[in-house]
Amino acid sequence: MLKDITLGQYFPGNSPVHRLDPRTKLIVLVVYIVALFLASSWVSYGVMFLFLAISIAISRIPLKALAHGMKPLLFILVFTGILNVFFTPGETVLVSLGAIRITAEGLVRAVFMMLRILMLITGTFLLTYTTSPISLTDGLESLLGPLKAIRLPVHELSMMMCIALRFIPTLIEETDKIMNAQKARGADFESGSLMSRVRALVPILVPLFISAFRRADELATAMECRCYHGGDGRTKMKLLRYKLLDYKTFTLTLLLFSAMIVLRRFGM
């Protein structure tokens, strides 16, 4: 069923990772991703892995949930692995079949690439699993705040993102309902040629679009009724403020980043 999509779902909790300021988590994630691309040896990958593993342990997100969210991305992971195994030039040839050659370098590289993607995705999931969409957009708005100086409508953008995130589950539920209703009228989505399957989507998409527009209209009216007029002069109930925990996290992340640079400098 469609409801089983858990990509980036928020898992409510009260762990230190949940309590971090969303800005801290966003910055740490960016630094973490850059550091991940600096890693190039078993040692540096080990350090990165340790950092990730400890973060997951502290967040108390069940590994099962993380693995479940990973499922739709399995294809990309395997594809990257295969691509790297076959198309990395190298000296030590292990298997050679005509034009296809598998080298030791290729294998190592494939493993590194897969590890990198895996750790990148897990890190991102950790952010979305421990941060509610609202605080995530709040954090983003605050971080992008300086861009207001060049007339970028930061508040409006973050409001749009917030609304979009908010309505994903609603629309999924709606799609489920419409699919069932059309199935009850004998619609068949599972068999037939590609063309007839595409055509079978019309009875779902038309009602879905209409209801999305209707919802947008209602939401806009409701917001106007409460005098919403954009970000000017708007105050917040929950002000974002860095706490001791955030500073500790920044220090740790800085340490990690320096370690990666040093390791790379020494070719490790």
Binding site: K177, I178, N180, A181, Q182, A184, P207, I210, S211
Partner: peptide, 8 residues
């Protein structure tokens, strides 16, 4: 016939 069938 589902609830609010006019939405289909």
């Amino acid at each position: 016939v589902f609830q609010y069938p006019e939405y289909q």
